[in-house]
């Protein structure tokens, strides 16, 4: 797996692991049974097949029991998935440190950073194209918008993904946990240039981030 660089990346990975264990068990059990039956009941000279309706209680239990167990596994998966979903998508942190705006268009990302005063939609906002700068261990709320068609903002190391829809503003949040430079992708097909709609996210420590804000504000960035 690729690195986990946000606070909730591990929880999403854990749901994936939970599902992998549960369905892996069923998968191995079913395939094992399947191939064993094929081998065990291969055609033999003089042996006639058994006549079973499948509705007799003593054989039907071989269907009803696994079937109830599948339901139980489903309940666990639902609980795990909904918990993570609630945390990542449904709630927004009350004490977010900053708000950024992400605007998709054919075929580039525009990032509106709050700038030095840490307020969005003020004169010192920093606009960048295809480069998102965030500070590690700070909570960000993003507003996702699109100018033309559907795009989708995806940061694989954060495990976050959200479509941008023209006309709408969709909110989400993330909190980076390690510094570095990672891929940002558009994952909703958006026309000919979909494949080049790449961006980079720069996760910086406090000092680097302050430096970047300073340099970007004076117009020497990029």
């Amino acid at each position: 797996m690729i690195p986990q660089a946000s606070t909730y990346a591990a929880s999403i990975d854990n749901v994936i692991l939970l599902i992998a264990v549960l369905v892996g068990f069923w998968f191995i059990a079913a395939e094992g049974m399947f191939f064993w039956l094929i081998w065990r009941f291969r055609a033999k000279e003089g042996v006639k097949s058994e006549y079973l309706e499948g509705h007799e209680p003593h054989v039907k239990k071989w269907i009803t029991w696994p079937h109830s167990l599948v339901l139980v596994c489903d309940v666990f998966i639902i609980i795990g998935a909904v918990q993570v979903w609630y945390n990542v998508k449904q709630r927004l942190p009350d004490d977010a440190d900053a708000t950024i705006r992400i605007i998709g268009q054919q075929w580039a990302w525009t990032f509106q950073h709050p700038g030095a005063d840490n307020d969005l939609d003020t004169a010192d906002d920093i606009f960048t194209v295809d480069d998102l700068h965030v500070e590690v261990d700070r909570t960000y709320i993003f507003q996702l918008q699109s100018r033309d068609v559907l795009h989708s903002f995806s940061v694989p190391v954060f495990r976050i993904k959200q479509d941008a829809i023209p006309g709408r503003s969709i909110m989400g949040w993330f909190e980076p946990t390690q510094t570095g430079e990672y891929d940002v992708q558009c994952v909703e097909i958006c026309g000919i240039g979909h494949g080049v709609m790449a961006a980079r996210i720069h996760i910086e420590d406090a000092q680097q981030h302050a430096d970047w804000i300073r340099s970007a504000s004076t117009g020497t960035a990029q």
Partner: peptide
């Protein structure tokens, strides 16, 4: 069966955030 069990990952909203598309 492989197709079926891998579908569970995508139907569970929490895991789909990562696997979608």
């Amino acid at each position: 069966l492989i197709g079926g069990v891998t579908g569970i990952f995508l139907g569970a909203s929490g895991a789909d955030i990562y696997f979608h598309d």
